[in-house]
């Protein structure tokens, strides 16, 4: 099979590492060769954060370049706009509608672009979800990442059991129930 590429984008601190690990575990259990590329260090401090998940029979490069992603999962609208060039023609963008001001907007040097979800829809297949509200409904704003994984799960056909196992593997026991709930809320979007 051809290599499939999924990009996860967001703002440092939003939990993209957990999301990419969940997905990586599901794909490995499904029998694929998998590579997941993460970002650590300075970029994690509230900057743009990008992780790559690639799978197939044999994966070489761990990174995704412009025009290569079959799917982008984004935790924040501005990051969706920034990552659009990485989407393959016909690719899908699952985005949270959350907006977090970057420093140039906070300092008043730039404006946060308006109506991004609509503008993105003109260029690509977009599924926009209020993941923050769903996460708060599940018990913590921090679970938006798992909500979006639920959305992804509902758009792919990997067995439920694999997702549940991955959650157990990657989430600390005391947050497991909360995250299961967040996953379910995302799944039913």
């Amino acid at each position: 099979m051809e290599i499939k590429s999924i990009m996860i984008v967001g703002v440092g601190g939003q939990g993209s590492l957990l999301a990419s690990r969940l997905l990586g575990n599901v794909l490995l259990a499904q029998g694929y060769d998998v590579k997941v590329s993460e970002v650590h260090g300075m970029s994690q401090r509230g900057g743009s954060v990008v992780t790559y998940v690639k799978y197939g029979e044999k994966v070489y490069s761990p990174v995704i370049e412009k025009g290569e992603a079959d799917m982008i999962i984004s935790f924040e609208l501005l990051e969706s706009a920034r990552s659009l060039p990485y989407l393959k023609e016909g690719g899908k963008l699952i985005t949270s509608t959350q907006q977090i001001d970057p420093m140039p907007v906070i300092t008043g040097n730039m404006e946060y672009p308006e109506n991004l979800a609509e503008k993105l829809s003109e260029k690509a297949k977009v599924i926009a979800v209020d993941a923050l509200s769903l996460a708060e409904q599940a018990g913590s704003a921090k679970a938006s990442n798992v909500v979006l994984m639920g959305v992804l799960a509902s758009r792919t056909d990997y067995p439920e059991e694999l997702w549940q196992n991955a959650l157990k593997e990657c989430v600390p026991a005391k947050f497991l129930e909360l995250n299961k709930k967040a996953f379910e809320l995302g799944r039913s979007v």
């Binding site: 994690q44 509230g46 900057g47 743009s48 706009a81 990485y86």
Partner: peptide
């Protein structure tokens, strides 16, 4: 590769103090 982009000035998001 071909790729798409928005006709929009997208502000950068450098790392910041928490």
């Amino acid at each position: 590769n071909n790729f798409q982009q928005l006709d929009e000035n997208i502000p950068v998001r450098p790392p910041v103090m928490c």
